[in-house]
Nucleic acid binder design. Structure first.
Length: 420
RNA sequence: GUGGGUAUAGCGUAGAUGGUAGCGCGUCAGAUUGUGGCUCUGAAGGUCGUGGGUUCAAGUCCCACUAUCCACCCCA
């Protein structure tokens, strides 16, 4: 197929026939977020490149090799946002949102852009539902945010979504731990990749999937043993709050996150219904981020939920989406006089919120009826010279074929659509 | 970025050993010129992913590229 009629690699059209699935997840996630007091925020698709370098961390893969970065005409370096947290944090600082009464709870839907090898469930442009909470220091906040994500899975009916949590401590205890970890790994036989990234990002080694490293990792020191008193108490309180809220989880001492801003609690929801890209939601606490970006230091935490992945899971599990609305009334018109009357009637019904249609394609009566059927029209009506002179028409229930006579006014037709 | 599979109409697909394309669904029209669903008849729709090569002849064989899928890496 010619280049111009093909979407760029790693992008995907959401077609009319499938869009009801998106509407379903957007509606449910929005309602849940709002019930938790979150307000929607919409931030730009691109930001200054430095925002992501500072926020996500210059040594991460996302920043080093996956960003869509370009110079604008004035030579400013801009980047299509690879994730949602940094932009939301920037906006919260810029507009003084964190200067108001805290906590500040935000949610958003956004496209994220990453230059990666595309795979199903991993696109170069993917969409996330995200939640960010600022100025909430209590462990209950961690539990609340996790619970929000969990509620989404419950309400959408997802089965077998596993929540894994861990604490990676504050910069203090993590520094201690990293030293120990590096010392440990230096005495081991590592795969090529791991030897490379040992100094740069030692905690990632815990996640290595190579068989040899898996063996090594069984004996690797675990962060939870190195947590300072404060971090340990926080993590313990998060876990008991989750239990009290009825959110089941497994502790996963090797769970680390790929972005630098995380502190203390990190978590991930995984689904067996996806392939290797099995994480459908991930997040954690990032108490240092706002200060790192130059704002008044306030605590932060949040998550991102991959919407393509979420929908893939729902499809794989055969879950229900809210069906698309179908047509309420199709008016077939037989001649040019009836055509105008039909058009007026259709307009008036639309003003009342009904989906009404009449012929625009120049079809004959039989074809118009077939088309009405394809639209899934609940009712149909035929207008010709007889109806115009009588001032009445027959309205037909397309499900059972029953017919009723109705006066040719929007008011009367409307009543018929409601009652019949 | 690495390794492997795949690419034929809008969608799903058939085309061993080379002889320039069928089928199902969908679309349109008619049977039924004032009533849909079922049925029947007919039609439209293909640069066989793109470009090159081998050959009298390529959807089929070879090379490159592109896209897609799976795994790695990484991540939501």
């Amino acid at each position: 197929m010619a280049l111009i009629t093909k979407a760029p690699r790693g992008t995907e059209d959401k077609l009319p026939a499938d869009i009801y699935k998106w509407h379903t997840v957007e509606k449910i996630t929005r309602a849940i977020a709002e019930s938790y007091g979150c307000k929607e925020i919409r931030t730009p698709a691109f930001e200054h490149t430095e925002l992501f370098q500072r926020g996500i961390g210059g040594t991460t893969d996302v920043v080093q090799k996956e960003m869509y970065t370009f110079d604008d005409k004035k030579g400013r370096s801009l980047t299509l946002k690879p994730e949602g947290t940094a932009g939301a944090a920037r906006a919260a600082i810029e507009h003084g949102l964190i200067a108001a009464a805290l906590p500040l709870k935000l949610f958003y839907f956004t496209s994220c852009f990453r230059y990666e090898a595309p795979q199903s469930g991993r696109l170069r442009e993917h969409r996330q539902f995200g939640v960010e909470v600022y100025g909430a220091v209590k462990p209950l906040a961690d539990a609340e945010v996790i619970c929000l994500a969990n509620d989404v899975f419950i309400q959408l009916g997802l089965k077998n979504v596993q929540l894994e949590i861990n604490s990676i401590g504050c910069s203090g205890c993590r520094g201690e731990y990293k030293k120990e970890l590096i010392d440990f790994y230096k005495q081991q036989n590592l795969c090529n990749l791991c030897s490379e990234r040992l100094e740069r990002n030692p905690m990632r080694l815990l996640d290595c999937k190579s068989d040899s490293c898996r063996e090594v990792n069984k004996n690797a020191p675990v962060i939870t043993k190195y947590l300072c008193n404060g971090c340990e108490a926080h993590f313990t309180a998060v876990k008991s709050a989750l239990t009290a809220l009825g959110v089941s989880f497994t502790e996963s001492p090797r769970l680390v996150r790929g972005l630098d801003y995380y502190t203390n609690t990190v978590f991930e929801f995984k689904s067996e219904s996806l392939g290797a890209q099995d994480t459908v939601c991930a997040g954690g606490r990032y108490d240092g981020l706002i200060a790192e970006l130059g704002g008044t230091p306030v605590a932060g935490l949040g998550f991102g939920m991959g919407l393509e992945r979420l929908i893939l899971v729902m499809q794989a599990q055969g879950l229900e989406f809210e069906p698309a609305k179908s047509c309420d009334l199709y008016i077939a018109a037989l001649d040019s006089g009836a055509e105008i009357t039909a058009a007026k009637l259709v307009k008036e019904l639309r003003e009342c919120g009904f989906w009404a249609e009449t012929d625009l394609a120049g079809r004959g009566l039989g074809a118009q009826m077939k088309y009405a059927d394809k639209l899934g029209a609940r009712f149909s009506m035929v207008l010709g010279s007889n109806e115009l002179s009588n001032g009445t028409a027959i309205i037909k229930n397309m499900q059972n074929g029953e017919k009723r006579e109705v006066g040719l006014s929007a008011e009367k037709v409307k009543l018929c659509l409601i009652e019949f």
